[in-house]
């Protein structure tokens, strides 16, 4: 019977060289007794040791001073807490205010409140169209960025925050529209956008290529970006027309 010894693979030898875990059991003992493997390990070590010939030029003594000179003028001052809303919140806040006014108008029919009384049906529709178009515009921007992201560990922290904002804003809009019109193509789209944004908001700050591809596949399978673009464009036109 042929009892040929099982030798260590090149990968095992690399793990051994770098003292990495994950070696098969008995690998070290085998290396001590097997001439073929110890010769291969020695040869690999020589090759990798040769890579140490690559030294880095020593930067000048005042190197860090030069770095500081380049960095210091570009350091942004730390943001101070302010009672004012940051600029990125202004549009959503304004939309929320309009929607709140709209809801008050819907709920309190008698006696007619001054604010709701001041809004004609046409004006309400216009506000709603603009609000929806703005919301879908922001969603489209984020979806496009995710769709175009490369498969190598993109930083998702900013996308997550934006998705969280969109989820909150979308829910408010969805409630308003559902109360007004019931189930429509727009409400199902908003629902779909919310589900996707929730997924993005719950992703880690740095997603793996696989996670990114899963998100992209999900987005593409339902043609979400396409639908958002179409409906956003319809509402934008409607808001401008009225």
């Amino acid at each position: 019977m042929n009892t040929q010894p099982i030798h260590l693979t090149e990968e095992d030898l690399v793990l051994l060289y770098y003292r990495e875990p994950g070696l098969p059991g008995g690998a070290r003992e085998h290396l001590r007794t097997c001439g073929t493997c110890s010769a291969a390990a020695e040869s690999l070590a020589k090759t990798l040791n040769a890579c140490d010939e690559w030294t880095v030029p020593e930067p000048p003594v005042d190197f860090s001073r030069g770095i500081w000179a380049g960095v210091a003028p570009r350091l942004e001052p730390r943001a101070r807490r302010s009672w004012l809303l940051p600029a990125r919140w202004l549009v959503p806040a304004f939309c929320a205010l309009l929607l709140a006014a709209f809801l008050i108008g819907r709920v309190s029919k008698k006696p007619e409140p001054a604010l709701a009384a001041g809004l004609s049906d046409q004006a309400r529709q216009r506000i709603m169209a603009i609000t929806l178009a703005d919301h879908l515009d922001r969603a489209e921007l984020l979806l496009t960025e995710i769709s175009n992201a490369t498969d190598t560990a993109p930083d998702f922290s900013s996308a997550r925050y934006r998705a969280q904002d969109l989820v909150g804003e979308g829910r408010l809009i969805l409630q308003t529209i559902s109360a007004e019109t019931g189930e429509t193509a727009t409400t199902s789209l908003l629902d779909e956008v919310e589900r996707f944004m929730l997924e993005v908001a719950n992703s880690p700050d740095r997603v793996t290529p696989e996670e990114l591809q899963t998100l992209q596949r999900r987005m593409n399978s339902g043609s979400l970006l396409f639908k958002v673009r179409i409906i956003q464009s319809n509402f934008r036109t409607e808001g401008q027309k009225s």
Binding site: E10, S43, K46, T47, N49, A50
Partner: peptide, 12 residues
């Protein structure tokens, strides 16, 4: 890849 390239001069 480095091994294939370097072995003729460094690995033997």
């Amino acid at each position: 890849k480095l091994r294939q390239a370097l072995e003729p001069v460094a690995g033997k």
